[in-house]
Every structure is written in structure tokens, then in C-alpha cells.
Simulated assay, not measured.
Amino acid sequence: MPGVGPGYGVTMTPRPVRVLTALLIATAAATVVVEVLNFWYAPDHGTGLAVRTGWAFARTLAWLVLIFQVRRARATAKPLSLILTMTTLFAVGRLIVPATGRPPLPGLIGFGVLALLCLTVVVLLHRHPAVDAHLIHQPRRLTLTRDGLKLREAPPGDPWVLTARLASFSYSPLMLVPALTAAGTLRHQLEWTLAVLFWILAGIAVSYVALLCAFFVGRGSQTARLTLASVTLVVVAFDLPLCGILLGADGLIRDGAPLVVAAALTLYALWRTARSPALAG
């Protein structure tokens, strides 16, 4: 909320932050519009399209979380924006390209507008000094005090820790989307039923493993960094062959590529945390 004038103790929200908020709202709206257009023009409304469109809509809610974090001046807005824009472009992009034929022109135009909005959002969040000065508040966590447990703001930490955490948290949905898509094709390949079931269970289990590892990575644990890096490699080695076998080359590109990018970002962030004097050791 803008300030009401000098002497009232209310800080005026910087103009770049207000512009950024408006851009985030426009990006969330554009995401929904493009997804509706893609679904409308899609020649085949099968299980795969339904699952991927449902995930795309569910992920749209994350834009509202990002808007909230920017308005609350949370430092977590930066890594969240990076993961969100990346997964949004991949998720929407794979909906545009049909299994056969050319993508519809309205979908291509909408995707171009969405890509431009995402790029602008990332540049503002990571490069504008006024936005950088605004995003100073750290996540809150339970702290034991003399008066009991209280939610307090965590001390400033390495931003690459937040990036590694958020990137690794995306493993679970990025595994579950192709697994559920493959489940819709089992009537034609029943011999893969157990593999798909294990795929779904692994997608659920990896969320807990990533959460536990990410917690200790923030505490500077070398073991946690190595464990999360190992989990990342196992997830990629497990997910990509199943995408290729059960969903074909199309599924490998649509569903495997986002996971590879998230894994690469996690590994790079872990490498950066290992080089941080505050967290190394």
C-alpha cells in the first residue's frame, strides 16, 4: 500500500515493485489464456492433454504465491520466479505443440507474449536495484524462546540455498505429470502397470526426500548436499527412460526436458552453496 505522506511512518512502495506486481498479474492471466487456447484448439483431448493442462492450471496458482511474496518483500521471490518462469514456459510450450500437425497460430502468439512477460519478470527481479533492495525479508521459522515457540524471520542466508530447495521441490510434480499421463495409456500396454505404479510412488516419495535434504542443506551440511545431488541424478536416470519408453520421443521432450533443467539448476545451486564460506564445511 502506498504511503500517505511524510511523517506517517509508512514506506512508499517503489515504482518498479508496483510495475513488477502488475506484470506478475498479467503473466498469471496470460498463462491461463494461453492454456485455454491450447486446450480449445487441440485436435485430441486425451488423458495426456488433460493431465498436462491440469498441472499447468495448478501451477498458475504459484503465480499468486509469487505476487504475495513480492508484496511482502520476501527474498524467496527471486528463486521462486526462476523456477516458476522456467516450468511455466516448458509446461505451456509442450501444450502448444500437438502430437501431429502444426501448432495453432493463436497459441503461438500467446506463447510469445507469455515468454516476453516471463523474461521481463525475471530481469526485473534479478537485475533492478530498487526491486533488489525491496526483497529483504527472509522466510519465517519456528524458534524456541523464553515465551515458547514463536515464528521469527530467519537470518539472511545464501540465495543459492533457496534456489536449490525450490528447484528440488519441483521434482515431485515433474515426475508425477508424466507418470499419470502414462497411466492413461496402460490399457494398451498392461505389462507396464507395476512400473507406472512405482513411478507414481517414487514421485511422491522424492518430495519428502528433497524436503529433508533441503532442510539440512540450509544448515550447511556437506552430507545433505551430496545426498541431494545423488537424489537428483537418480531421479533423472529413473524418469527419462520411462518417459522415452512409455510416452515416446514426444513425451521425452515434453516431460523430460523440464526435469533436466530443474535438475541442472539444483546441481548448479548446490555447487554454488559448496563454494560459499558461510555454508561450506
Rank of each mutant, 00 (worst) to 15 (best):
M1E: 00
G3H: 00
G7F: 03
G7N: 08
Y8G: 03
G9C: 04
T13N: 08
P16K: 15
V17Q: 09
V19T: 11
L20K: 12
L20C: 05
L23Q: 11
A28G: 14
A29S: 11
A30R: 15
V32W: 02
V32P: 00
V34E: 05
N38T: 00
W40R: 03
Y41E: 04
Y41P: 00
D44I: 07
D44W: 02
D44Y: 06
G48F: 00
G48E: 07
A50F: 04
R52W: 02
W55R: 10
F57I: 05
R59G: 15
L61M: 09
A62L: 13
L64K: 10
L66M: 09
V70R: 10
V70G: 09
R71M: 08
R72P: 03
A73E: 05
A73D: 02
A77V: 03
P79W: 01
P79L: 13
P79T: 04
T85W: 02
L89K: 04
A91K: 04
R94A: 08
P98F: 09
G101N: 13
P103D: 08
P103I: 06
P106F: 11
P106N: 07
P106H: 08
L108T: 05
G110T: 01
L117W: 11
T120K: 14
V121Q: 05
V122S: 08
V122P: 00
V123D: 06
L124Q: 12
L124P: 08
H128S: 10
H128A: 08
V131Q: 06
V131D: 03
H134P: 07
L135Y: 12
P139E: 06
R141L: 12
T143I: 12
R146W: 12
R146D: 10
G148F: 10
L149H: 10
L149D: 07
P155H: 07
P156A: 14
G157A: 15
T163V: 05
A164S: 14
A164G: 13
R165C: 07
R165K: 14
F169P: 03
F169N: 07
S170D: 12
L174M: 09
M175V: 11
L176A: 06
L180H: 15
T181W: 11
A182T: 10
G184Q: 14
T185V: 11
R187M: 06
L190G: 14
E191Q: 13
T193M: 14
L194W: 07
A195V: 14
A195D: 14
F198A: 14
A202H: 14
S207C: 03
Y208D: 13
V209P: 03
V209S: 09
A210I: 05
A210S: 15
A210F: 08
L211C: 03
L211S: 14
L212D: 09
F215K: 15
V217G: 09
R219C: 02
S221N: 04
Q222T: 09
R225S: 05
L228K: 09
L228C: 06
S230N: 08
L233G: 02
L233E: 06
V235Y: 08
L240F: 01
C243G: 01
I245F: 01
I245M: 04
I245Y: 01
L247G: 01
D250G: 04
L252M: 07
I253G: 00
A257E: 06
A263K: 01
L265R: 15
L265E: 07
T266V: 04
Y268T: 06
L270G: 04
R272P: 06
R272C: 02
R275T: 00
R275A: 12
A280P: 01
A280G: 12
G281R: 15
